[in-house]
């Protein structure tokens, strides 16, 4: 196994382990109090104006119709086109959209190259994929460079952003920029780019088919791997935690009517011992949430005597 192989495998393992660990940690957090924020796109027939089933008389007796397609539409527009940024921060969108969409295309191109690598290892034809891979990655890298430059300039010169930016914000952009720029350099200097990229992925499994890559390819791969390695330890994990902020908070509107199964999950949470220190809470190291909230705190008892 070469150093390149080691670096690739270790990066993939770290990336997946850290992402899964974070995802599991968030998913296993307690069920919180309802904190919906409208519009909620699965409210069938009401999402377009932000309505909910609570608009109905005796709503608890009515069947709930959830519009999962409507939810999917909102998610697709949000993920692919950054619709929220377009609507609320147009100036930022002109940097953020190419930055993100460029990344999507780059990842899409790499996925096609992985597919080509699999076909290659299976002895199947993959030449038809090569022009597609080239065009997709080219477009992605060009968009990515445009987005990176705009975002960097905004982070530096827009005081709204600069005073809230930490060193990592600039570093992240520089890393992304480096990936895009080295991608363009590799593409423009290597006529066999797509074949080499496919070969690279096949070579990760079968080293004998690893092609001789140009030096710039190693810079590109190195930058991408480094980025992947540290990404799960930064706020950029919003690429998947956004699922939770939307589905587990904003759009989470599960009811707890008599007979609903939710209470069974809530009971253990209410059995937890409270340790807040303020006197009015009345925590004594033994009382749990039920004890605390169903009996007056010491301070309150004193006042009622």
């Amino acid at each position: 196994m070469t150093f390149l192989h080691f670096f690739v495998y270790i990066t993939i393992i770290v990336f997946l382990a850290a992402v899964i660990a974070r995802g599991v940690r968030i998913a296993r957090m307690p069920i919180h109090l309802r904190w919906d924020l409208y519009p909620i796109p699965h409210e069938k027939g009401r999402a377009h104006y932000g309505g909910s089933i609570l608009e109905e008389v005796d709503w608890w007796t009515k069947p709930r119709h959830k519009d999962h397609i409507g939810e999917l539409k909102v998610m697709i527009l949000e993920i692919l086109l950054l619709k929220g940024v377009w609507e609320h921060n147009r100036k930022l969108w002109f940097g953020s959209f190419p930055l993100h969409f460029g990344l999507y295309l780059l990842i899409g191109g790499e996925a096609l190259a992985v597919l080509g690598g699999v076909l290659h290892l299976l002895g199947q034809q993959f030449l038809f994929l090569q022009p597609v891979i080239t065009v997709v990655i080219w477009t992605g890298c060009v968009l990515g460079v445009i987005g990176t430059v705009i975002m960097l300039l905004m982070r530096i010169f827009d005081s709204n952003l600069s005073k809230f930016s930490t060193p990592s914000h600039y570093f992240n952009l520089l890393m992304l920029g480096a990936i895009y720029v080295t991608g363009i350099l590799w593409l423009s200097g290597d006529q066999g780019f797509a074949a080499n990229l496919v070969g690279f992925y096949a070579g990760l499994v079968s080293p004998s088919v690893m092609p001789a890559l140009p030096a710039v390819a190693f810079w590109h791969i190195g930058c991408a791997l480094l980025f992947m390695f540290y990404l799960p330890f930064t706020h950029m994990t919003h690429f998947f935690t956004k699922y939770f902020t939307y589905h587990s908070v904003r759009w989470e509107d599960e009811t707890n009517r008599p007979g609903d199964p939710l209470q069974k999950k809530l009971d253990p949470q209410l059995a937890q011992v409270v340790t807040w220190s303020a006197p009015h809470v009345g925590a004594d190291g033994r009382k749990n949430w039920v004890d605390i909230v169903t009996s007056p705190a010491p301070e309150i008892e004193k006042e009622t005597k």
Partner: peptide, 8 residues
């Protein structure tokens, strides 16, 4: 309204 969707 914003937190409960009671709009119409």
């Amino acid at each position: 309204v914003r937190s409960m969707g009671i709009v119409e």
